[in-house]
């Protein structure tokens, strides 16, 4: 039982990372109705800069780098809107283009070496389980950001404007909301959130230039699995996937280890926790 608990706790720490990556995804979906596939690349860029410079300054510069990258995405978004794109899949695909470009810039500027930095060395022992503080820190940061986002989205006027823009862009425009500008802001916020995730990964396990796409896909899965309608579900999705992965890594063997989390995702989707009520065809 203790062992099981230990796996669950490890899974939660792991899942916090996915949840963190899911936050910008859910945010973009709730407010813009699209997915920013460059989130993993923002994380990579922040980690690369953070690893090179180091310390608090490195973290700040890393965040700045991620922010700049996401501003590029925001600009692309505005240009796409100006060009008359209403199909949100185009925005998602161009964010993929940006992700590829960032990955390439990282490879060219830093080479193929891994980015890893020493986190905290201490080990806490809680009820026989040895825990490095980095795990709880990641979880706490994730929860704090989630709380902040939820408050922003559902408790403030800006949040209402954001949600209105997603639900009915035309209506929001008529109501005097500068929809495109507000939505562009969301991409910038995604850059900051992605950057924070990247820095935490840098101090937890490290990553290399190939990580961008897989981080994006992890965040994507987390944000969708319980439904993409709000960031809390995204974060929860991340935790659930993390726990499923840790348990299957612990108890599964060989191929099972990799298969179980995928079946969990399919099963969750198949069970329709998303609400099959959207059967009549909600198209973003």
């Amino acid at each position: 039982m203790l062992l099981f608990t230990e796996y669950v706790i490890r899974g939660l720490f792991l899942g916090a990372m996915y949840g963190l990556l899911a936050l910008p995804m859910s945010l973009a979906f709730v407010t813009v109705g699209t997915i920013d596939f460059a989130v993993g690349a923002y994380a990579l860029l922040a980690a690369a800069i953070g690893a090179t410079v180091g310390g608090t300054l490195g973290a700040l510069l890393g965040l700045a780098g991620a922010l700049v990258a996401s501003l590029v995405m925001a600009a692309v978004f505005v240009l796409l809107k100006r060009a008359g794109h209403h199909d949100t899949i185009m925005i998602a695909l161009s964010s993929f283009g940006l992700a590829v470009a960032i990955g390439s810039i990282v490879l060219a500027s830093w080479g193929s070496t891994a980015f890893v930095r020493q986190g905290l060395d201490a080990v806490w022992t809680v009820a026989g389980i040895r825990i490095n503080p980095q795990g709880p820190i990641n979880l706490a940061v994730g929860l704090a950001l989630l709380a902040g986002l939820t408050a922003l989205l559902f408790g403030t006027g800006l949040g209402r404007m954001l949600r209105a823009s997603a639900v009915n862009a035309q209506g929001a425009e008529l109501a005097g909301i500068p929809v495109v500008a507000v939505q562009a802001l969301i991409f910038a916020a995604g850059g900051l959130l992605g950057g924070i995730a990247g820095l935490l990964i840098l101090y937890s396990s490290g990553l290399d230039f190939t990580a961008g796409l897989s981080l994006t896909l992890s965040g994507f899965a987390a944000s969708i699995v319980f439904g993409v309608s709000n960031p809390a579900r995204g974060f929860l999705g991340g935790l659930a996937i993390g726990v499923a992965e840790a348990l299957s890594a612990g108890y599964g063997s060989g191929a099972m280890t990799a298969l179980i989390p995928q079946f969990v995702v399919l099963l969750t989707l198949g069970l329709g926790m998303l609400g099959a009520g959207r059967y009549t065809g909600y198209r973003p």
């Binding site: 490890r10 792991l14 990964i201 190939t210 897989s214 840790a246």
Partner: peptide, 8 residues
């Protein structure tokens, strides 16, 4: 390759 936590 891209596992972010290897404690399990």
């Amino acid at each position: 390759y891209t596992a972010t936590d290897l404690t399990a």
